[in-house]
Amino acid sequence: MEKINFKSVSKIFPANLNLTDLLNLNFKTGGDTKALDDISFDIHKSSLIGVLGKNGAGKTTLLRLLSGLLIPDSGKISIFGLNPLKNNLEIKKTTGILLNQERSFYWRLTAKENINFFASMHGLDKRTVQKRISRLFDVLGIDKTIYEKRFDSLSSGMMKKFGIIRTLIHNPDIILLDEPTKNLDYESSLNFNAFARNYLVKEQGKIIFYVSHELREIEAISDKIMILNKGKLLKFSDTSELCANQKISLMNAFVKTVNDNHNE
C-alpha cells in the first residue's frame, strides 16, 4: 500500500502551550489552537506536492504529522499502511524531515561529524554515507573543505544545505521539506529543485512535500498543489489544472482561493 492517506485529520494544540516553533498559529477555538481541521487526501508515489499557505496556516503541523513527530487528535493517518502511533519508528525510517532550525545541529562539531552522527542514528555505515553525500555535494555546490569546518562557523545558507543532506541521507521514501531553498544561493536552489523533481520524484519514485512561499518555484516544480488556510485544506489539485482553469498564475490562484474562503 504505497500511498499516504489522511482521513478527516484534525490537530488541536492546548491553549496553555507556548507554540513558538509552530509559527504563530492564529485560528483558535475556545482558547485552543486548531492547527489542522478535518483534512483528507490521498497521495501516491512519484509526487511532488507544493504546500502553500500564509504563516500559521498549518503547513509545519502537516509536515510534523507526516513525520511522526506529532500525533493527530482525530481522524486517521496511514503512511504506506503504517500508523503513526503504532509504527512510529518505521515511519521515521520512511520519512525525512527538513527541520527549519539552524540550531538542530551540534554547533561544536564539524559538519562531517554532525552528518555522520545523524547517519548513525539510521544505522548507516561510513561508506554508504560517503557515497550519498558526494552526489548531494555536487547538487548543492558544497566544497569538500567546508565539510571539515565547525558547524558554528558556517553561513546560514550552508547550514540549510547540510540540513537538506541530513534529510536525505537515509534515502527516505517520503521527503518533507520546509522552505528548503530559503537562504540558498540562486544556482544551488535551481540545482536542488531540478534534482528533487527529476531524480528523487521521477526516477526514484519519492513523495515530496515542498513548503515554500516562493510561488513561482512551486509552480515550476510541483505536480500538485495544496493550499492551506487557518488549518483547512482549501484546495488540493494538479498544478496545471489549478492555474489553467483559472487562466491565471499560481500567485493569483493562491490569493483568489484564500480570499474566496475568507469571504464565505
Binding site: 511522526g68 532550525q101 539552524e102 554547533w107 539510521h122
Partner: peptide, 14 residues
C-alpha cells in the same frame, strides 16, 4: 536548549 532534541526524535531510535 541546543535545539537538537527534535532532530534526535525524528530519527528511528528506540
Amino acid at each position: 536548549y541546543q535545539g537538537t532534541f527534535l532532530a534526535l526524535l525524528s530519527t528511528p531510535i528506540k
